[in-house]
């Protein structure tokens, strides 16, 4: 392996090379530090119910753990980032499979997991052609190898669910890991993570403040049009301002492009949220699991991220190119 790849994959000493990384971390840590103060102040002015207070603290603590779990791999190196994304893909798929009942189809699940692990390898290897090829290949294996079971009853359902699971959690989410194949991936990945979470919070807050008309009441009764618009405005402003730092010196250091990026993150993020709401509604479930106390399943937290990852990846790639100086196929040595 060339030193440049090693440095990107394991070079924790470069964690704070970019000012934008420090800026984003500062924002997150600041918010996390202020939250307890806000809870205490709110409690003082108008005492909360015990249950409500306990829930707020539990949520805050869960966030603390989540932030460490998300930030640590990104700072430590691209290898750890990719590993964390692959783990996230697997856990999200597990929740999806258990919620739909697909997990009882062990063979289908095994094929999806193999697909997700293969995506993880393609990402780590910086082998884009394999990364792209894995979508049709996994679909082919899901549809094709199932025939061996000689059990046509439920074939369409298990193949379709397997493909949807792989598309969302293997292929789409895999793009988040692929972002780490750029030399300056840290700030970009953090920007995506922070702005997607901000987007959720902004929609919630502006919905609470101004929301009257429902966005799509059958899918998610608590979402309002005002919330959606507020989220677009706040997220776009944030992405444009912080993006100026993150993409300094690249083709994206350009206001209109950054504003469009902000709109993409906000709109696609909200769509991802609604995708999961639709899935849950269809299944008649409230949460996808109980992985994170106070939040529900991991999917309930990361739903907005799933569709944002490929959207941001291809937008940035289109303008700026991606990891152009980085060696490709580091481990496989494939010539493509």
């Amino acid at each position: 392996m060339q030193p440049i790849s090693w440095d990107r994959l394991f070079g924790y000493q470069h964690a704070f090379d970019q000012p934008a990384t420090i800026l984003l971390l500062g924002i997150v840590l600041g918010v996390l530090a202020l939250a307890p103060v806000a809870i205490l102040v709110a409690d003082k002015r108008k005492p909360l119910e015990d249950k409500q207070r306990a829930e707020l603290w539990q949520r805050w603590f869960s966030w603390l753990v989540l932030v460490v779990l998300m930030a640590a791999p990104v700072l430590l190196g691209a290898f750890w980032t990719m590993l964390a994304v692959t783990a996230l893909s697997l856990i999200c798929y597990r929740e999806f499979a258990r919620a739909t009942g697909l997990f009882r189809e062990k063979f289908t699940s095994l094929l999806v997991v193999v697909g997700i692990l293969a995506v993880g390898f393609a990402v780590l290897d910086n082998w884009y052609k394999l990364f792209v090829a894995l979508f049709p290949l996994t679909v082919a294996s899901l549809a094709g190898f199932q025939v061996v079971l000689d059990r046509p009853a439920g074939y369409i359902q298990r193949v379709a669910l397997g493909i949807l699971g792989f598309a969302l959690f293997g292929s789409a989410l895999g793009h988040l890991g692929y972002l780490a194949n750029d030399e300056h991936y840290r700030a970009v990945v953090l920007l995506v993570l922070v702005s997607v979470e901000l987007n959720d919070v902004a929609a919630f807050v502006s919905g609470k403040l101004f929301g009257r008309r429902k966005l799509c009441p059958n899918t998610s009764p608590n979402k309002t049009i005002a919330g959606a618009i507020g989220a677009v405005l706040i997220t776009t402003a944030f992405v444009a301002l912080v993006g100026w730092q993150v993409f300094a010196g690249t083709a994206l250091e350009h206001w209109p492009k950054l504003i469009v990026l902000g709109i993409i993150i906000s709109v696609v993020g909200q769509l991802g949220d609604l995708v999961l709401s639709s899935i849950k509604r269809d299944l008649g479930l409230k949460d996808m699991g109980v992985t994170i106390p106070g939040h529900g399943g991991l999917l309930d937290r990361f739903d907005s991220l799933i569709l944002v990852a490929p959207a941001v990846f291809h937008y940035v790639w289109y303008f700026g190119g991606f990891g152009l100086q980085q060696p490709i196929c580091i481990f496989s040595g494939a010539r493509s």
Binding site: R98, A99, T100, G101, F103, D282, L283, L285, V290
Partner: peptide, 10 residues
């Protein structure tokens, strides 16, 4: 669809 019977358990 038949979600896991133990879906909501820790």
């Amino acid at each position: 669809f038949e979600p896991a019977r133990d879906l909501t358990l820790t």
